[in-house]
Write a protein that binds this DNA or RNA. Structure first.
Length: 198
DNA sequence: CAAGAGATCATCT
DNA sequence: GATGATCTCTTGA
């Protein structure tokens, strides 16, 4: 039950994306606690990755991707939803892992209220959904996942996902990215019910 | 079921 | 002024 540190996030983005499967995202809101096991991620691997927002260079929105590992990058998409990323690798090298889906563990009743549904499968099975369930907004953007008092962080609960249970696939919704749309930079746990797209 | 439209706004040209 | 690392609902077979 240890919190992941900067050393973990400073590793190569593709490796972090893979290793995050089975780790547990924890959210604290006052006395409430929410958590879920990460079951699906995507790697956005550098400035040359045309699917990455950082391929456009450093802007107000993306500057946090240029920091060292362990910061949150949260942005609004399509005017309705937020997406949650954790920044990886060294300073000045823009890269991050998009957290796409979780398997709910603790605080399920609160997630049901936040998502306005009783269907467990529909609580956190997508990047926009999990942000709504976990009350993640732009306020989280650029904050640290590894500081002492972080209200959003990732725990290692020693859940080991065997290599043959990890599926590699193309990333979702990046048709504009040329040859980069076909790279196998999405990772998910085989047969897990909470993965957003099979 | 699958496919398509619509919602709505921060960000960059 | 266009566009998107999404989701939900409606339509139609």
């Amino acid at each position: 039950m240890t919190k992941l540190t900067q050393r973990f996030f400073d590793q190569k983005t593709e490796l972090v994306a893979k290793e995050l499967l089975g780790k547990v995202l924890v959210r604290k809101i006052n006395d409430k606690k929410l958590s879920g096991m990460i079951v699906e991620t995507e790697a956005y691997v550098g400035p040359h990755d045309l699917a990455s927002h950082a391929s456009k260079g450093k802007t107000n929105r993306t500057h946090v991707m240029f920091s060292s590992g362990g910061f949150w990058y949260v942005y609004m998409i399509y005017g309705f939803y937020y997406c949650l990323n954790i920044v990886t690798e060294t300073e000045d090298y823009p890269s991050a892992v998009l957290i796409r889906a979780l398997e709910p563990l603790e605080g399920i009743e609160i997630m049901k209220q936040n998502r306005k549904t009783d269907n467990i499968i529909n609580l956190t099975s997508g990047p926009g959904k999990l942000c709504q369930a976990f009350e993640i907004t732009k306020k989280i953007d650029s904050t640290s996942a590894i500081s002492e008092n972080s209200k959003l962080y990732i725990e290692d609960r020693e859940i080991k996902i065997p290599a043959n249970q990890i599926v590699k696939a193309e990333r979702i919704g990046v048709d504009y990215a040329g040859i980069w749309k076909d790279k196998l930079l999405r990772f998910y746990i085989k047969d897990n019910l909470f993965v957003s797209k099979k």
